[in-house]
Amino acid sequence: MAVVTFMRVVGAAIICLLISAACGNQTSSQVVYRRHVVTIAGSTSVMPFTEKLAEHFMIEHPNFIINVQSGGSTAGIQACLNRTVDIGMSSRELKHEEKSLTEIIICYDGIAVIVNPENPIRALSLQQIRDIFAGVLTNWKALGWIDRRIDAVTREEGSGTRSAFEELVMHGAAIDDGIMVQDSNGSVKEVVATDPYAIGYVSLGMVDTRVVALHVDYVRPSVETILARQYKIVRPFLYLINGTPSGPAQQFITYVLSKDGQKILEREGLIPVYAKK
């Protein structure tokens, strides 16, 4: 008998689920509850900041739901082209065939080259950084530290930070195959924070006390040096829209570009749009 009851319960549960599935579809199309849903996907570099902006935005607008997904710049651009998301996030410039999308620069971000705090080196030239990632320089001894292999960490293919780094630092030289690969800003930072002999690159906004951002060509990476156009490894953070955005999406973008939104970004170590003109 227990089994019969069990089967009945399972059956009932399945029916309930099917009904709820059907209802779920309806509510999203008819907007019965007046919930505005905005879906955003793309660059892992932009994601944490969008998440933060969304948190603040949703406090002020409780009837909004902002779904933020990471996935990488390329995925964000594609999703936006297919219209599977309202807003795409990218941390690299659009390629020629992607230019049908509208770009909205929400802020600028520096890419910091980071090492472990135990590492005494505090400055490198752009050429030295290029040599490390091209696999030419492989030992810290050549840079005046101990005789130990350099554990360089790069990002994976498709990452906006990687393509910005390739363009701004590597100048077309290939990143060596023997270099470690991690798939997000956070995991690159985590490797550098735990391995004294590591070197990597992350969004400047991610730098905290667990890692040290190197001076590049004698310039300290900071908001000031970027604004003064001295620190050169800078890329824009973009929101992408396909055609005219939906009302709720437009409202969120307006919020991001507003003084409040830009303040939040500034507090996170990014360079607001109005500052860099």
Binding site: S184, N185, G186, S187, K189, E190, A193, R210
Partner: peptide
């Protein structure tokens, strides 16, 4: 996985 990997 995300907490651990990204050192959040």
């Amino acid at each position: 996985y995300i907490l651990a990997r990204e050192g959040i």
